[in-house]
Amino acid sequence: MKKHIVFVLTAIGIVVVSCTKEIKFKGDYAKDKLVVNSLLAADSTLIANVSHSVFFMHDYRYKETYVNDAYLEIFVNGNSIGTMTYQSHNASNAIYTLPYRLKHGDKLELKAHHKNYDNVSAITEIPYSSNIISVDTAYTSNKYNRKTLNISIKFQDDPNISNYYEIKANLISWTKSNNKNEISRQVIPLWLYSKDIVFNNNSGTDPIFEIDLESQSLVFEDYIINGKEYTIKVISENAYRYNRNVDGYKDTLDIYLNSVSKDYYLFQKTYMAHTNNIDFIGIFNEPVQIYNNVVGGIGVVAGIAINKKVIPLN
């Protein structure tokens, strides 16, 4: 667990002594770039977030980075289907939409233009849904006598294409206030880890600190299990239920085996490695470059097919 890191570092007696010296930057100042992020699904409106980058020597904490006057054109299977329309913004991002329904297997290209930035483009594909056969759950205790949730997902991999998957889980809990008859719905994302071979040690135990590498999103590809029926097992240690079921409402576990594009897989894989590095787990590792598929700019345009199984809890 991540909270054990403090005890490990204390035990090995790491002492950090630092001093500071101001050094004048003499390099070239990088030009700001367009930043485009979009996660696209079949049968859903197209949505993109657009902003611009800020050079690392500039103070970006109080700087508005949204871009609300960009031109975004969408191509599906080589044909232009229209331009995205600006809807709203916050300090960081502007939201653009296009009311077009994508289909599984569609190949999409996004092109963005703005007078102040270089042109950018990105290509992705909308994957087909995963084939979940069954989902089983069981509570056990780990070596620290903590209650853990074990999730087993049986699915059939498609042998005809390269597949990329994402596992996520949410605890859906209903609560009733003590003073009022108000009922609220809580969505609690679960932290997951696994020692399954499909993760290729990207989600298991850190070899130095011997702690579990947890994430709210676990991704893997199918090259080991191509075309097979396979059962993958993941574990969560934060699937706590603090309240009993409210009359008329039942707590559930929402378990996802999403099919994702290769772009999404590479982004999540590198983002998780980066997160583990900055959480002291990879304190001796080299820096990780987060995947980016926006040519000429920054960001990720990717596809996803969501597949959810709902498990009622007693």
Rank of each mutant, 00 (worst) to 15 (best):
I235W: 12
P287Q: 00
D254I: 10
I290L: 02
P287L: 07
S215A: 11
A273V: 07
N238H: 13
F220K: 15
I235K: 12
R244F: 13
I225H: 04
T270A: 10
K262D: 15
G248E: 12
I290H: 01
Q268D: 14
F267D: 01
I224G: 00
K262T: 02
V219R: 13
K250S: 08
D254A: 05
V288I: 05
L218W: 00
V288L: 02
L257D: 04
E214R: 11
D222S: 07
D212K: 14
I283W: 04
K233S: 13
I232G: 09
F220R: 09
I278K: 03
L257P: 04
L253E: 09
V260C: 09
I255E: 04
I278L: 03
Q289K: 12
N245E: 00
E221F: 07
D212Y: 03
Y256L: 06
S215R: 11
I232E: 12
I281H: 02
A273W: 08
Y291P: 00
K262A: 14
I283N: 04
P287R: 00
E214S: 06
I211Y: 03
I225R: 09
R241V: 07
E221N: 14
S215Q: 09
Q268V: 11
E214F: 06
G248T: 05
Y265P: 04
D254S: 13
S261Q: 09
F267R: 13
A273Q: 10
R244A: 07
D247C: 08
K250D: 01
D247S: 15
Q289E: 11
A273I: 08
D212S: 10
Y223F: 10
S236P: 00
E286M: 08
M272D: 10
T275F: 01
